[in-house]
Simulated assay, not measured.
Amino acid sequence: MPLLALKIDVDTFRGTLQGVPHLVEILHRHGADATFLFSLGRDHTGRAIRRAFRPGFMKKVSRTSVVSHYGLKTLMYGTLLPGPDIGRGCADILRGVRDAGFEVGIHCWDHVKWQDGVVGADMDWTEHEMRLACTQFTDVFGTEPIVHGAAGWQMNRHALRMTQRLGFHYASDCRGSHPFMPVWNAEVVHCPQLPTTLPTLDELIGVDNVVEDNVHERLLELTESPPATGHVYTLHAELEGMKLAPMFERLLLGWKQQGYELVSLQKLYAGIAVDELPRHEVLQGEIPGRSGNLLLQGPEFLADAGR
């Protein structure tokens, strides 16, 4: 049976309070597993207004209703309103996800700060942010994290190195086509990447006649032929856990009809022969439907190439 891993990014305080419990209920009802990746520091979503000056950002916003998905109050956190502490304020919800049988891991410490700042950050900044998230995770769950999934698929070379140094067993920090061992400028980072292989709902809605009511059909077209290494689909507590929940349920039904087993990243990783993983360069690039650059799986790295 082909595997399709559900990776749930939780970006905000509201998404944690409302979207996460709803997703737990939906997943249980459909007999699906998943990995929840949490933002663990303060919610500073309002500071994302600075992205308005990025090429393509306003075009994306015009296709998806940011206010309806995130709420006006969330869009003021970190500017007109103080940002609530997600890890501390929602600790019972986070532990409840684990107790319900789902894998839990780290998305980031401060979502906006990471997504907007990590690409150009130095080692000290990067390590500080990742250690804050790890410490909060350990305080909440009583165990160390084993999976990392970067906010906005934004990483730098220091962050990749830290996934190895901090002992993560695997990560899902980039977009790509199949599991691999990442290489940055000929340096192999020994933390396998399980990249997101499918587009997200907000990347598809508003493009080529795709709307909220039929977006699931477009995704199901992309999963008709299962790849040997499985798929990773990234969803968001603020979208599929709230307004887009009906579309997510249609996806779950469709994927089960296509024969997929809906699993966590941990289950996907368990079926991988790590020592046999291909090594691929990682690079910064664009993908359709999303503004700016993000981390992508690049060409296979052949150490002897050109010799």
Rank of each mutant, 00 (worst) to 15 (best):
T135I: 13
R88D: 13
V112Y: 05
R165Q: 15
Y70Q: 13
L94M: 08
R165T: 15
M162P: 00
M123F: 04
M76C: 13
W125L: 01
G71A: 08
L160E: 04
E129W: 14
V97T: 09
M155G: 00
S172G: 07
L166W: 06
G83A: 00
H178N: 05
R131K: 10
L166A: 04
G87W: 01
L166Y: 05
V183G: 01
T143K: 12
T126P: 01
P179Y: 14
Y170R: 06
G83F: 02
A121K: 04
R98C: 03
A91H: 08
K113Y: 12
R175T: 11
A150M: 06
T138W: 05
D92L: 03
H169E: 15
R98G: 09
S68Q: 15
E127Y: 02
E129Y: 12
G149V: 13
V112G: 07
T143F: 05
V119T: 14
L201P: 09
N185C: 05
V97D: 02
N185D: 12
Q154M: 13
Q136E: 12
G83W: 02
H190D: 01
P195R: 07
H69L: 09
C90W: 01
F102S: 08
F168V: 12
G89A: 14
L80C: 05
V183P: 01
D116I: 11
H158I: 05
L72Y: 12
L81E: 15
C191M: 02
H169A: 15
L80P: 02
L132Q: 11
V97G: 04
K113R: 15
R161D: 04
Y70G: 10
R98V: 06
C134Y: 09
L194Y: 01
E187T: 06
E129F: 11
L160Y: 14
V188M: 01
G152S: 02
V147G: 00
L198V: 13
M155C: 08
I106G: 06
D173R: 09
G117Y: 04
C108N: 15
G149A: 10
S172K: 03
M130H: 12
D85H: 14
D202R: 09
S68N: 12
D202H: 14
G89D: 12
V119D: 11
G120F: 04
P199W: 07
G120T: 07
G117D: 04
V104Y: 02
H148M: 08
I86E: 00
A133M: 08
M130I: 13
L75C: 09
M123V: 00
F137V: 03
C191R: 00
P82F: 04
S172F: 06
T197A: 01
G120E: 06
A151W: 09
A171R: 13
V118L: 03
R98I: 03
A151I: 10
V119W: 08
Y70V: 14
P182I: 00
H178V: 03
V183F: 00
W125A: 02
W114H: 03
P179C: 14
N185A: 14
V104S: 03
A91L: 11
F168M: 12
V188Y: 01
T143M: 13
E103Y: 08
V112K: 08
S172I: 06
T79K: 02
V104G: 03
N156I: 13
V188C: 02
D92N: 10
W184Y: 15
T196L: 10
P192Q: 09
H69W: 07
M181T: 08
